[in-house]
Write a protein that binds this DNA or RNA. Structure first.
Lengths: 237, 237
DNA sequence: TCTCCCAACGCTGTATCCAGTATTCGACGC
DNA sequence: GCGTCGAATACTGGATACAGCGTTGGGAGA
């Protein structure tokens, strides 16, 4: 059976294609947090055998997107607040370093345009408030900075970024007010990168995530004893 | 065929056992940097089939220890200086954050004893100068801090740490003078953690790695135009 | 009616098998 | 003697087959 339903280009390994497809489906919410990922169904649906599929699941496991329990197969990671906080703590320093290296690299003007374009689309998601578009642009912004850093090890951390922003979306809903503040912080980060101010770029990027951590922790400590405010909004970064 | 030669305990998945064995063999230098990893030979040698072995190789690939090229199998990563520098840049902020969180967690006294015990063995590697013992204790020290942080995402970065310290060992030889200075820095970090000084712990830990980056970069820029000093020693952290 | 046990099912984990391709060794020509 | 072409080899990638285990639904007994 020859790759029915898998659209990846030639030359690229089938495992990577499968990993990309599954990643996208997890990000998009098609496989919600905590959902089982039965190998036979997925293999049949994707038109491949279980052998490469299992390797793809191992890749996603290492990326932190799924959890493979021996004897019980794979599940999409389910996110408690403590895990989310731990991931954000790593993101704070990773994003900070990425911003510093991006500022140091002094990206070509075209790349800066990309960053500004992402910011524009993110701002556009405010007027007719579209959480989905906002989150998408938000992920794009942070991921773009990772790429601008030119450091492959930082790029490899992208799945953690997407996990915090997209997989755990149900637990971390955004509200427009915080989104607006987040965008302002984004613009300050972009300005620092364009100006080549390494220290500012790192400090701002780290503080940006740290603000989210603080908010999330405050809400958690607040909501845990008396969960009356169950509709509380989550991080906007 | 029933796990001949694989010694992992029961209950744990075979893939994880294989990954652990291969990891250790790469760390120990049995599979040197750049070496091919033929699946058939390894499978026969480990007494398992190729199916779980391939999954284990995918795990190691995600950890950055091997590179799987489609159609050409897996090789141990080969380290040029640029890659090593990129990895150290990530380590600088990761180790810094780990030290901060370890200081915040205020580890139990027993854990502090462990840290001090590692430092003692590292210092013992100085008198009869044993680069191998030194590097081992060095890895233990940094890895211990990752665990003390209590952050699973930081612990997941341990392979990057071991890669920089052990896989790329040939390119980064240590010399006793730098080792002594590195140990002094380690002790300062340990003291800050025990005292619960978060800012000091992070600053010292990050500077510790940053010093290595600066030295390595200086040597590289120095050695590249006129490679007369080919015996130059590498980082000691 | 509730609980407990058992059997059937489904699924995972591993091994084996086949096709395609990169590599390498040897022979031939320059 | 050296470079190049080609065939044999060996290895990777993917599919399929089989064994073991967990789960679940139904039936019997209290």
């Amino acid at each position: 059976m020859a790759r029915r339903g898998v659209t990846g280009g030639p030359g690229t390994g089938l495992v990577d294609e499968l990993a990309a497809v599954l990643r996208e489906r997890i990000y998009s919410g098609r496989y919600p947090s905590g959902a089982r990922l039965p190998q036979e169904n997925l293999a049949a649906e994707l038109g491949v055998s279980r052998t490469p599929l299992r390797e793809a699941l191992r890749v996603l496991e290492q990326e932190g997107l799924v959890r493979v329990t021996p004897g019980q197969g794979a599940r999409v990671v389910s996110g408690d607040v403590a895990t989310l906080l731990a991931a954000y703590e790593l993101r704070a320093v990773v994003d900070g370093l990425a911003a510093r290296l991006a500022a140091r690299a002094r990206p070509a003007l075209a790349r800066c345009r990309d960053l500004r374009r992402i910011l524009a689309s993110q701002r556009a998601a405010l007027d007719p408030w579209s959480p989905r578009a906002y989150t998408g642009a938000n992920v794009d912004f942070h991921e773009q900075i990772l790429h601008l850093s030119g450091n492959e090890f930082l790029v490899a951390e992208a799945p953690v970024l997407r996990m915090t922003a997209q997989v755990f979306a149900p637990v971390a809903l955004v509200d427009p007010a915080r989104a607006q503040r987040a965008i302002a912080e984004h613009e300050a980060i972009a300005t620092a990168i364009e100006a080549g101010h390494e220290d500012d770029a790192e400090r701002l990027a780290r503080a940006h995530i740290q603000a989210t951590i603080d908010e999330l922790r405050a809400e958690h400590d607040d909501a845990a004893p008396t969960p009356r405010d169950s509709t509380a909004s989550g991080p906007a970064s």
